[in-house]
Design a protein around this nucleic acid. Structure first.
Lengths: 337, 337
DNA sequence: TTGTAAGCGTTATCAG
DNA sequence: CTGATAACGCTTACAA
């Protein structure tokens, strides 16, 4: 591997001049040519480690997500990669197996790797993490969930309205007993989605039966179980809204096992995976989060901070979701009225 | 951030001694204690960039996959991350949007980032890439597909036997006209799966009708279209084997649209996504690739090379697939006999 | 505009 | 076992 020194020798100029050229400084046209020629001949490539040592930049951003098994997150980071790579940044990916206790050590790993910035979704929600990062002057963008009591850039879906709209579609179709499968109690997303459920009931002056609100922990298994809980109620719901992808799968598995007919016996709205919605029969209605927009926005905000632009800090982007109503939703059966 | 220098001052020892301690050299017990104490007090963390400049290692490995939208690849890299991180390596992820023309530039990006090793799945299959890497002494492990004419470590599923077994299950159930939806012509995986299909037909002395072999390009759309092609045949197949996940989705969508009953009208075996197989009705039979094993094995082989251990080079790991027969497969309808 | 030279924080060689 | 000291390849004052 050739170095600047080699290029200097080859072109008969000094190291400093080469460096200046490399960094876009002013160099005599004549010299530009001979430097570029030397670079081409030698196949010179700048050594990013040496550069980083000097500039204290690695040109990498850390991406910390709960799991790589979930298309919601991988779609997002796919778009993050697009954006940051166009600016020369690489993306070091860590997942913490959805285990908040791993979150900490993975974050530390990223910091040890001297990433220039971090995009993360936090399950732990500990404010101390972020404060530390801010101390170290490492820009952070939070994804999917805010952390209470911390000033931090954040990009997420408008979960409250997503939930509101989904349930509203059901209410408009005369459903009165609407089950909702939400996430774990401490999760920000779950709280928002619960609020949406409650608000739309209030707005339409429908009673709220706490029995109909079942919490899972965003896994397939708890989705399955949540359905069972709802289905064994004395007064069954006539519709169910499931608030994440994994639990939607669990619910559908349970529905198949219990021989429930969709939408005759039950209307169903799921979450997040547009592909699956087309594969199951009847076609599944879903609430779709704007993964691409989330990823791109997060990357752009981080890039902005990386460029030392701290205007509008903290930026909170609450992106609109999209709802697709398909055959899995029908007018409510009269028996429930 | 404190440096070795600070630790040296604090402990009253020299930089060289601290460095030796840090790298596991022999240091007087007395000094060990005071060094460690200094480190703790100062919160010293080794600067990996400076270290890398010296050792010419970044402690990162590049991972290049066709797309982050595909659970097959993301599951694999999730396990890669597990293994390499336990050895202190970070993972820089790039996807090339399934576009072979992007493959090259992404690979270059990774090289520019000075990754210590690379795990990649190549669609382009250009031997020059790999040769370059070998020139640069960067270990590479190929995933999912071999590249003809290149000596390189490689980890993949035993596609030929996977295909053989799936079709064999169908043959055992008296199917005689078995459609197969394979990948694009130049793809290694597609060729292997085609070979399996042909070999099992030969072994069971069944005629091969080329009409029944339809190539897609591993996308949902071509899966849909492949089904249409098969279904409009004068003599329809009584069973279909689809050889990747995306195309399986496409086929199921088409099956739903065409109102085909599974397994009465058609037996079906899909590929790769175990979750989906449980969600659709009737339960889908699938061939499952051992993603975890693929990821872990690839990471281990790379780690071995990174440790300068070149025994058994090149290692080819052809991992066994698993076949799950569920309700989507039935005995052949008599009408086709 | 160009060149000299001093670091950035490590590792590694070689005396002591 | 320990400590000066010279790299590693680059950026950046500062001087010419």
């Amino acid at each position: 591997m050739s170095t600047i020194k080699d290029v200097a020798k080859y072109s008969g100029l000094s190291i400093a001049t080469i460096s200046k050229y490399l960094n876009g400084g002013n160099v005599l046209e004549e010299n530009r040519v001979s430097i570029q020629n030397a670079i081409d001949q030698l196949g010179y490539k700048r050594n990013n480690m040496a550069r980083g040592l000097k500039t204290n930049k690695t040109m990498t951003v850390g991406v910390l997500i709960p799991t790589l098994d979930n298309i919601f997150f991988t779609k997002i980071i796919s778009h993050i990669e697009d954006i940051i790579q166009s600016k020369g940044y690489g993306m070091i990916v860590c997942d913490f197996k959805s285990d908040p206790s791993l979150e900490r050590s993975k974050l530390e790993f990223l910091i040890d790797k001297h990433v220039d910035g971090i995009i993360m979704v936090s399950y732990g929600g500990e404010t101390s993490y972020i404060k530390e990062l801010i101390d170290k002057k490492i820009p952070v963008v939070l994804l999917d969930r805010m952390i209470k009591g911390v000033e931090c850039d954040c990009v997420l879906a408008d979960n409250l309205n997503a939930s509101y709209q989904a349930v509203e579609e059901l209410i408009r179709r005369k459903h009165k007993r609407i089950g909702i499968v939400i996430g774990p109690e401490h999760a920000y997303t779950a709280e928002e989605r619960r609020k949406g459920y409650i608000r739309v009931h209030q707005d339409y002056q429908l009673p709220i039966d706490e029995e109909l609100i079942v919490a899972g922990d965003y896994t397939v298994e708890t989705g399955y179980k949540a359905f069972e809980d709802l289905w064994q109620l004395k007064e069954r719901p006539s519709a169910i809204f499931v608030t994440n992808y994994e639990m939607t799968i669990g619910v559908i598995m349970a529905i198949n096992d219990y021989g429930v007919n969709i939408p005759e016996d039950l209307s169903l709205i799921g979450f997040d995976n547009i592909q699956m919605s087309k594969v199951v029969k009847p076609a599944l209605s879903i609430v779709e989060q704007p993964m691409m927009e989330i990823g791109k926005t997060a990357a752009q905000v981080l890039l902005k901070r990386l460029a030392k632009d701290y205007t509008d800090f903290p930026e909170i982007h609450r992106l609109k979701t999209n709802i697709l109503i398909k055959a899995s939703v029908a007018q409510c059966c009269t028996e429930n009225e």
